[in-house]
Amino acid sequence: MRKTFIKTLLDEAKKNPNIFLITGDLGFMALEEFRDSLPKQFLNIGVAEQNMMGFAVGLALTGKKVYCYSIVPFVTMRPFEQVRDDICYHNLPVTIVGPGAGFSYSYNGATHYGLEDISVMRSLPNMTVVCPGDPVEVAAITKVSTKFKGPMYIRLGKAGEPIIHQKKIKFQIGKAIEVCKGKNVTLIATSNLLENAVEAAKILAKKKISCRVLSMHTIKPIDKATILKAARETKAILTVEEHSIIGGLGSSVAEVLAESNLKVKFKRLGVRDLYPKVIGTQKFLREKYGLSPEKIAKEVQLVLKNN
């Protein structure tokens, strides 16, 4: 996802000299080409994320379209008040780009995990929160973001995420994409966990459970219409995210369902309210916290069984 983002941004920035990329000293093996080919549109501001956000706002006030890049917690939580007061309160075209969704930084441990970022970013007025589910969605949102007028947070995985969309997609901010058709149950996935939702649907298909999979790439504004349609057309909705179950995709969908008059079974799958105590590969951690395809499929069956 990271490589797709930077390649797409570089292509756009070559055409639009107003695009400016700032990094908080991260991007080894990722940002070099951008840095070397567009030095006038690039700045490494050092390991100082609070200053990075304020500085980005200053540049935006002089007419630049600014991107701020560092690992998820360092662009969303460390400089949170700068994001709030400087970027969102002033409603400026600054895009925050955080690689490292969920457990992407595997053995680096909990300080490097991105498990609360969606929650805190979506609480901010004026902020648009986009969590692309595969490299195809990353390329699409990166292109769209260059013309976007307000603050935006783009949550990226890291490296090696598979391509889910084999065909061309129609990408629109705030509009979920149906990845698999289905009529018994709906899995709503976001960000890097789209892959496991699709795999879970395949397992369920073998058990004759027809599972709809939606890529909810935009968490804010949330696509109410598609959620309500799923609530009307399928018996249960489960949300799937590599993020805390508090405040992220699951909460966003729950808010929509709770305020509707529809009766549908519902469950949030994600990381419970905890700091992971052990480390491991992303695959191991997904398994441990109930987010592997098998465990997602099992949860779906449990929800359908319970009356």
């Binding site: 700045l43 609070q50 200053n51 956000m53 304020g54 500085f55 980005a56 706002v57 200053g58 540049l59 935006a60 006030l61 002089t62 007419g63 630049k64 700068q82 400087d86």
Partner: peptide
């Protein structure tokens, strides 16, 4: 001062 710095750089 961060914002002022960004504007000055811009």
């Amino acid at each position: 001062l961060s914002v002022g710095g960004g504007m000055a750089y811009g």
